[in-house]
Amino acid sequence: MVPLSHYLGLSAILFILGAAGFVFRRNIITVFMCIELMLNAVNLAFMAFSRFLGNLDGQIFVFFVIVVAAAEAAVGLAVIIALHRHRPSLNIEDVDSMKM
């Protein structure tokens, strides 16, 4: 059987990749997908813990995370579309009407 540490390692790598992508990527859609990657890294951790603890709470949590992520995606994409109507690009650096 694959040990727990492998799952957690993969989950940590995915989470860090998502966080790094959030900070360094410039396209708004890509940034948004990086957040989804982070959420899925968390899901993987929950699933692994749930399997190794022999307890279903973690799996229930994963369902809730998926539902909430879907709701967030619906709102997030709507926000991005509303934003795109006023701007030609989806580059995050162009979203800077408010500066010190």
């Binding site: 959030f22 940034v31 957040i35 959420l39 967030e72 926000v79 408010m98």
Partner: peptide, 18 residues
């Protein structure tokens, strides 16, 4: 400005949720 506020709030808010 309102659009921009929504986008920034949304992106950083979901980032924090993760």
């Amino acid at each position: 400005l309102s659009n921009e506020a929504a986008l920034k709030y949304f992106l950083l808010g979901s980032f924090a949720t993760a």
